[in-house]
């Protein structure tokens, strides 16, 4: 395919049934089907976009959201530059889970990762239980950004990915790249998987603050 100047890995987190996959599908294929039509392998998505004249390749990794698979998270999110943490605005439980993901991401990857907190299913405004103010305040307090989306009505999805990509671009240009010598198009730039080295003490500190 065409070569991209930069390539980012974005991981999708959130409880099952909050619409993680619907959001990506909406973004990649611009379709929403209540009963999904399978057109490709789910789980892994690629999209190239242009931002300010730069070609950027996004690879989006879907994860399994069930509680029983929670412990597998790190295998998926290591090395990613962006995370999309999704909750369902009509489901308080999913919001708690989303906050946990964000805590964990911050503990494990520090500031290396661009965080997005997504309140999905905005079309169900009537049964909303998580107020916009609350979630936005929380997002701001952890350095994440909050977006409201509706995969069903195609609201806010495009903006979400565009904004996320811009933020990742800004971040990556601020940090000098590790491998200047071998950068050679879309595929090779994946080489610079940034290694999330969190010093031990920082790790335990985060643990303590979690405990309170």
């Amino acid at each position: 395919m065409s070569e991209a100047e930069k390539s980012f890995k974005v991981v999708l987190l959130g409880e099952g049934c909050v619409g993680k996959t619907s959001i990506v599908l909406r973004y990649i294929q611009n379709t929403f089907v209540d009963k999904h039509v399978m057109t490709q392998h789910a789980g892994f998505f690629q999209k190239n976009i242009n931002i300010a004249g730069k070609r950027v390749g996004l690879t989006i990794w879907d994860t399994a959201g069930q509680e029983r698979f929670h412990a597998l998270g790190p295998i998926y999110y290591r090395g990613s530059q962006g995370a999309i943490v999704v909750y369902d605005i009509t489901d308080a439980d999913s919001y708690t889970k989303a906050k946990n993901w964000i805590k964990e991401l911050k503990a494990m990857l520090g500031n290396d990762i661009v965080l997005c907190l997504i309140g999905n299913k905005c079309d169900l405004e009537k049964s909303r239980v998580i107020t916009l103010e609350e979630s936005e305040a929380y997002a701001a307090s952890v350095g994440a950004k909050h977006y409201g989306t509706s995969a069903k009505l195609n609201k806010g999805v495009e903006e979400l990915f565009l904004d996320l990509t811009k933020r990742m671009l800004t971040k990556s240009t601020a940090i000098p790249t590790i491998s200047g010598s071998s950068n050679q198009g879309a595929t090779t730039s994946n080489r610079q998987d940034r290694i999330p080295i969190v010093p031990e003490n920082e790790n335990s500190q985060e643990g303590k603050t979690c405990c309170k």
């Binding site: 009963k35 399978m38 879907d62």
Partner: peptide, 28 residues
């Protein structure tokens, strides 16, 4: 991994069902 998708598609279409979508939740 692909043959998981294939066999689901195959079965669903054989029984006249609509195709189902397999998210990571279901795939793992």
């Amino acid at each position: 991994a692909r043959s998981i998708y294939n066999s689901i598609n195959y079965e669903k279409s054989a029984t006249g069902n609509e195709d189902f979508f397999l998210s990571a939740d279901d795939f793992l």
